[in-house]
Simulated scan of single mutants.
Amino acid sequence: MIHLTGTVLHGDGVASDAWIDGGTITYTRPVGADRAHTIRGVAMPGLVDVHCHIGLGADIVVERSEALAQAATVLATGVTLVRDLGVPADMTWIDAESNVPHIIHCGTHIARQKRYIRGVSRDIEPAELPDVIVEEARRGNGWVKLVGDWIERSKGADADLEPLWPREILIDAVQAAHEAGAKVAVHTFATETIDDLLEAGVDDIEHGTGMTPDQMQEVAARGILVTPTANQVATFAAIAEQAGAKYPVYARRMMGMYENRVEHMAAMADAGISLLMGSDSGSTLSHGTFPSELQACVDAGIPASAVIAAASWEGRRRLGFSALEEGSAADVVVYSDDPRSDMSVLDSPLAIIRDGRLVSEATD
């Protein structure tokens, strides 16, 4: 048994004490509480990284040993729940491991030929999308990942971000996914893609760097989730530099979004969008960077209170998971102070608990 004391932030409010017994949490002192292991600090539901690629690395699909190391690194940051937004391999084997977060699998990214990172996506023709999205949905745990736009290099110097899917096909595909019991998350940078996503009724927009103020208002009104991925957007300057003279139109757009990133993310929060937090770790960004992602979102103008809520109790609930309500599974991270007032504590959790099991505890 574990006794949490100090401050316990949970989906229904705040408590001063809680006990973990048999893998679940209770706010009523149980029999045998005097023998419990006590952890003092600010406890909250384990963090949720909704955009993470465990099993993906510089060489695309990594060996099992490296995937386990990635997962352990993520868990060590207090992340007990991951939505793995696309890996071109069956990663369900990792669910049997203990020193890993809970993982929501999303199958493989769906894209078109030469319109995404080579080797990462399942590349198809537009007409195939409704059938393929159902196939990938069946491989996942209720989510599927689409690439909504990417550079169209065939246009040479005029190349720019362009939507991948005709609107009517996208509408049919999203409907098919929903009928199969899956929600749809879409990678998008471009303004031109957003209206199609709204028409199609997607559930989650990843990055969303091209959204206009009017589109933000509509996204908020429809309750569509958005993951800002501040660390990924911070790489846009390097992407623009790499595009350089070969793709000047694309380079200007990426640099413009980079330069406007702070105002843009603050505007998302001001619009009342339901935010999620995601590191986009895997391949180009390292695993274990979730704390820096949260700090980057705060630095970009999203209030710390909104960032921490989205990374913990609100984010978990938005994905359909418990948030330390009475009798729910005990996924917990404990800090020395409230991260809403001191973000630095995110770098050094006092304790991490997964399914009621103490995974790690700091020692003096």
Rank of each mutant, 00 (worst) to 15 (best):
A96H: 11
A96D: 13
V100G: 06
V100M: 08
H102W: 05
H102E: 03
I103K: 11
H105F: 03
H105Y: 02
H109P: 12
H109W: 11
I110H: 03
R112A: 13
R112F: 10
R115E: 04
I117C: 02
I117G: 00
R118D: 15
R118L: 14
G119H: 07
R122L: 06
R122I: 01
D123F: 11
D123S: 13
I124S: 11
E125G: 06
P126L: 01
L129K: 12
L129V: 11
D131C: 04
V132Q: 14
V132H: 14
I133S: 00
V134R: 06
A137K: 11
G140F: 06
G142R: 07
G142W: 06
G142D: 02
V144K: 13
V147K: 08
W150N: 09
W150G: 04
W150T: 03
A159F: 12
L161N: 14
E162T: 15
E162H: 13
R167P: 08
E168Q: 14
I169E: 11
I169F: 08
L170G: 01
L170V: 00
I171C: 14
D172F: 11
A173F: 07
A176N: 07
G181E: 06
G181N: 07
A182S: 07
V186D: 04
H187A: 01
F189W: 13
A190C: 09
E192R: 13
I194F: 12
D196A: 15
D196G: 14
L197E: 05
L197W: 04
A200N: 10
G201F: 00
G201I: 01
V202C: 07
V202H: 04
D203R: 09
I205A: 07
E206Q: 15
H207Y: 00
H207C: 05
G208P: 09
T209Q: 06
G210S: 00
Q215C: 04
M216D: 09
V219N: 03
V219C: 02
R222T: 04
R222F: 13
